[in-house]
Design a protein around this nucleic acid. Sequence first.
DNA 1: GATGAATGAGATTTCATTCAT
DNA 2: TATGAATGAAATCTCATTCAT
Lengths: 186, 186, 186, 186
Amino acid sequence: MGEKRSDTKEKILEAALRLFSKKGFRETTIKDIAKEVGITEGAIYRHFNSKDEIIHDLLISITNELKEAIVKSMEKGGNEEEIFKNIIEALIDYAFNKPESYRFLNLYHLLKEYPQVIHLPGEQILKFLNNLYAKKKLKTYPEVALAVITGSVERIFIFKERNFLKHDTQLIKRELISTLKDALIG
Amino acid sequence: MGEKRSDTKEKILEAALRLFSKKGFRETTIKDIAKEVGITEGAIYRHFNSKDEIIHDLLISITNELKEAIVKSMEKGGNEEEIFKNIIEALIDYAFNKPESYRFLNLYHLLKEYPQVIHLPGEQILKFLNNLYAKKKLKTYPEVALAVITGSVERIFIFKERNFLKHDTQLIKRELISTLKDALIG
Amino acid sequence: MGEKRSDTKEKILEAALRLFSKKGFRETTIKDIAKEVGITEGAIYRHFNSKDEIIHDLLISITNELKEAIVKSMEKGGNEEEIFKNIIEALIDYAFNKPESYRFLNLYHLLKEYPQVIHLPGEQILKFLNNLYAKKKLKTYPEVALAVITGSVERIFIFKERNFLKHDTQLIKRELISTLKDALIG
Amino acid sequence: MGEKRSDTKEKILEAALRLFSKKGFRETTIKDIAKEVGITEGAIYRHFNSKDEIIHDLLISITNELKEAIVKSMEKGGNEEEIFKNIIEALIDYAFNKPESYRFLNLYHLLKEYPQVIHLPGEQILKFLNNLYAKKKLKTYPEVALAVITGSVERIFIFKERNFLKHDTQLIKRELISTLKDALIG
DNA sequence: GATGAATGAGATTTCATTCAT
DNA sequence: TATGAATGAAATCTCATTCAT
């Protein structure tokens, strides 16, 4: 019974993520979500107080998930160059393995003001880059490096989604990692 | 009279761009736009058949403007390295000088709300990169290079808008240009 | 077991009375009542067929309680003047000792939301006043006297609830009783 | 055109007053009001921002109207006894001539918390009673007197509405005025 | 061209009531 | 008896678009 409850709640979150990332926040209605789950609109409100709460819950869990992925990639160890490559790999993997979550995040941050409560995944990376910079191992400012990294990954993701990239995903990944490493490290 | 007409029409487009880029498409109402211009809702429909038409008109003119800026930057001449740098400079300048237009474009393309029939400014750049690649002067695939370039510029723009970048704009611009050049050319 | 059943039923009625009198009928939800009792919505329907039934049950029992209080006060005996004073005292005491019940009654009858099939407590008083009037001991029509009595008590109650009355409750009570007696009897 | 605008707004207020006073606030829907006026729900919102705003606007205008009636009755002059009688007459006349407004006021104050902004009509009367009391011309405390006056008028009004009073309105009015005068003044 | 009232469709949210467990 | 998820109807409010003036 406890199962059932979290089951529906989970289904709502999954459906909402799918729809938000496909159609946007405003364009996705509570009715859409309900229909996708196979319940009625009213039932949504047993599990969430508002549409905004659904969005916020998704934001929190996705942000944490991505942060964790980054932290985990940094903890895999190796020298700084390897850690750098691991981070980028983690970003790409997250984008490609959880495209809806990744898309949701980009959408949210483009559309909504940052609530200062949320710690962004980028913060983790920035700390590492600051450290590299202090050691003179970064070719540019940490913030610029962060922009290049996260911006490149996002665009690669979008290009892939739109079928602008003919090459194999693994190939693209290796290519991007090595390009960014050469561009920023050394 | 023709003057006057296009005057109001122009004002509507400007107001709409300002509001769309600040609040989003759905969040901006026809009434908002009318108020910003200083006319009433009904008057908007003298100049446009629908809200979507306003959006579409903006998309066309902004896309063309950016494409032109890129083309012009490529026509400035010089060797390939200089052209490469000119293109990136043109992108950054466009983003920083016409932030609303640049934001509009990003918003539009991320939302996928509207059909994407438009030829993107990136196509111009891609041709140039393809050419470089054929001459073995590009360190990675043209599509990857395009992703790195456009993604980096977008992120720098977002960081600047959110005050994540402390450094002077000109400094950042030079930094990004040289970083991307070293990363991709040679 | 019969005990237990009427126990929960009683708790529901008490909680409902508390909430209805504080927030109004429509503003109080079944969920509110259930929460106040410490059960869930569905459980309410084991004891009552509908929200209206709860309201109706409360109306009946409160009306009877007040009627009884009035009848009892009239049966205490004494001369007519004493009975008159006893009735008013009973009304005031009921209002001050059972404010939620008294408020419920006023709310119910003012709203006219529900059918008013109930015999009002005032009827008891009216009989007594009719009798006084026949004996030429009432200074005005019985209906007017009833209006003055019940209206005054209600307003005193409201003023007290809203802290418009600085004086001690007992003092106010004596004051109102003697004022009404002088005004109506003799 | 300005005519038309205030025309509809006025019609909405009239319809709303009629319905609120007959059915209560929650029981009256925006759709009810719109239907009564002969427009659609959406049209209401060109004239008012919310249902609450309609209620608030009505509260303000009715409160002012009643206050004015009281003030005007006090300014008619005469000795204190005459002023006292004039006030009560003004109250009764207001209740009987504007039953919907009077009912609205009672309903509002029973259901809603007092917003401290609103100055109640009773305040005007209380000042006068305080003055009488200081001169030893009032038989009881001013607050008690106010409760008796306003409570009696309200009940007379309710009795009349429910056909509990057989006598002629004018007779009742004279009767109540003289009863209250004898009860409170001297 | 311009106004602004009105429409009509749809979105979010609420809640009494039902029902499977 | 009790739970709480789900329904379904209705309420408030929004807004692109139309239309009489």
